[in-house]
């Protein structure tokens, strides 16, 4: 699974769950907070994306993530482990 494929899943969930992100361009440099997400919406995006991607990331690795780039790094690493 490529980084682009993972980002596509993430973006689709962000646009569906966070009202402020609908119709907006989403970049790796953004954080979900930039689109007005509350903490619960962030949890929902992360949880749903992991489920759809069929990957599990230890919570400890997610606790320090601050933006979409950081989240993508963690998800990409977990996907590589599954594939490997």
């Amino acid at each position: 699974m490529t980084r682009e494929e993972i980002f596509a899943v993430l973006k689709a969930n962000i646009q569906e769950i966070i009202p402020g992100a609908r119709g907006k361009e989403i970049l790796e440099s953004h954080s979900m907070r930039d689109f007005g997400a509350d903490s619960l919406e962030i949890v929902e995006v992360v949880s749903r994306s992991m489920k759809q991607l069929r990957i599990k990331v230890p919570r400890s690795e997610l606790l320090e993530v601050r933006d979409l780039k950081g989240l993508l790094d963690v998800l990409e690493k977990a996907a590589a482990k599954v594939q490997g």
Binding site: P19, G20, K24, E25, H30, S31, R33, D34, F35, G36
Partner: peptide
């Protein structure tokens, strides 16, 4: 400076 959406700035 708070992101690209009005929702975020309003909050």
């Amino acid at each position: 400076q708070r992101g690209p959406t009005e929702r975020r700035r309003r909050q």
